[in-house]
């Protein structure tokens, strides 16, 4: 793809975008329901964000300012690759600052900085079906959703507690949306689950290979499944960020030598950098010039 003029704005043709927008609107109208859509073959592999890319392409307008993160970071290779794709095919402005972005495409994280009305958060979803690993058949899981037959979901949690004394699901932690559909929030750590709830932004989920789109409209309820006597608890490494000293952000563990030394740093690179610019310094950080 060297000759860009051969391609439409944001790569997809307008008819395809309309088809995807219809699926998005249906998803917004039925929060948590997986809307089948005719996912297109994209010039990047399935499983690498084709669903998110199609949703983003259908949402983008020339005035948008796009941010792309993978594992919370703007500079991981796949985030770079997707950001470049849209710079090339849509020519939109890009940013690393969460609050400046109008559209944010993400894989595996929700930014630490609270989102605001008018922002759209697009998730890349590998397996949209929260029941998939309990029941491999699509025909079967579709019926289970239709009937709200979610007993099996709790059987899994029950087994966790009986074996480990607690619910042993650390990411991709299923939620029940607006009292109806059980939804897969994509493989975000369960630390991020509370941010799904009552979020001011529109949250859209795209699964390209599995041909599904679903959504959480602003200020939706999304209850992490649990038991009354074993309530859901968001968790993270019991540290503060070694660079910016944030006590409450999700941390990546970095191995610093072969003697077992390690440090913990914010997975949200924009959040960490902003804090350091504002003068916060962690035990292993250095002060940064204000920007």
């Amino acid at each position: 793809m060297t000759d860009q003029s051969a391609y439409n704005f944001a790569y997809l043709d307008e008819q395809t975008k309309r088809m995807i927008r219809r699926a998005i609107l249906k998803g917004v109208a039925i929060p948590g329901y997986q809307v089948p859509f005719a996912s297109r073959e994209m010039p990047m592999p399935y499983g690498w964000g084709t669903g998110g890319v199609q949703v983003t392409a259908a949402c983008l307008v020339p005035e948008d300012r796009l941010k792309v993160i993978d594992q919370g970071a703007d500079d991981t290779t796949n985030a770079v690759s997707i950001r470049r794709f849209f710079q090339r095919t849509a020519g939109v402005a890009v940013t690393e600052a969460t609050e400046e972005a109008t559209v944010i495409q993400t894989r595996h994280r929700i930014p630490e900085t609270p989102l605001t009305e008018g922002q759209i958060l697009v998730y890349q979803v590998p397996i949209p079906e929260p029941l998939r690993f309990l029941e491999p058949r699509e025909t079967e899981t579709r019926k289970m959703h239709e009937l709200e037959d979610y007993g099996l979901m709790h059987v899994k949690l029950y087994e966790d507690i009986s074996r480990h004394g607690q619910i042993a699901t650390a990411y991709d932690y299923p939620v029940k949306v607006e009292g109806r559909y059980v939804m897969d929030p994509s493989p975000i750590p369960k630390f991020d689950n509370p941010k799904l709830v009552g979020n001011a932004a529109i949250q859209l989920f795209g699964a390209g290979r599995e041909q599904r789109i679903y959504a959480l409209p602003p200020y939706s309820e999304a209850i992490s499944l649990d038991f009354e006597d074993y309530p859901f608890a968001a968790s993270k490494a019991d540290h503060a960020c070694d660079l910016c000293a944030a006590p409450d952000s999700y941390l990546d563990e970095v191995i610093t030598d072969d003697q077992g030394s390690r440090m913990f740093v914010c997975s949200d690179t924009d959040f960490c950098a902003s804090r350091r610019k504002a003068g916060h310094v962690g035990p292993m950080g250095t002060p940064m010039a204000g920007g």
């Binding site: 037959d149 979610y150 007993g151 709790h154 059987v155 507690i161 038991f227 009354e228 074993y230």
Partner: peptide, 11 residues
């Protein structure tokens, strides 16, 4: 399982 299927939520 059947209890949970009909809404039991107290482990």
């Amino acid at each position: 399982e059947r209890l949970m299927a009909v809404g039991a939520r107290h482990y």
